[in-house]
Amino acid sequence: MEKAINITLKVWRQAGPKAKGGFETYELKNISTDSSFLEMLDVLNEQLVSERKEPIAFDHDCREGICGMCSLYINGHPHGPDAAVTTCQLHMRKFKDGDTITVEPWRSNAFPVIKDLMVDRGAYDKIIQAGGFVSVNTGGVPDANAIPIPKKDADEAMDAASCIGCGACAAACKNGSAMLFVAAKVSQLALLPQGRVEAAARAKAMVAKMDELGFGNCTNTGACAAECPKSVSLSNIARLNREFLCAKFKD
């Protein structure tokens, strides 16, 4: 196995939300194949700083695949060519010596570019604020085993809850649809008794907010689930449709 590779990076640079952006090309030598994609960008940024150039702005936080901040569109795939990992978990050993790697920000009308590779994903927060919660009265903590929950439901709820809100689904979707994210959030709560109570109102409120923010209409192409770093399943979208339709027919 190679220990170090030389690569060419084509990176989207854009000074601000309104500025016109374009690709810049950078040559990188001796990148360890053990480094993560973000560490490779750190090396590049060090290089740019030492040349007194503006470093590349990109989002990141935990660097261990749980926060959902990292968000790079690498060689035509959100979070890169590897399956079921976030950008921060992508390793340089997935690339070959001499490769040209194109790095772009998420592209979606509802995710405007802030700077370079950084986009504003506040739209997802607004959808959560519209209904992605359970209302509870404060008081004593109930016993965890007081409400029995079938293992199958608990498992499905946990799988849906693994969504980290990264936005790769909308970024991958040819329709700019946020359905996988909304479906994951609606499912995770609708499957459990605590969230069931408000399930109908939640589905309506979150879908209404999603539409208002300008996300597209889902046509079930499945690019979202294929690119999701947490492998959230497409079936959640069927559940969201079901929840939404039942809620509408009850009205």
Partner: peptide
């Protein structure tokens, strides 16, 4: 509507996913 939801800037590189028909 979906075309508009994609935004004005398009991806320079887009790959296809194996399980997308």
């Amino acid at each position: 509507q979906n075309y508009r939801a994609r935004g004005k800037e398009r991806y320079a590189v887009s790959a296809r996913q194996a399980d997308v028909e």
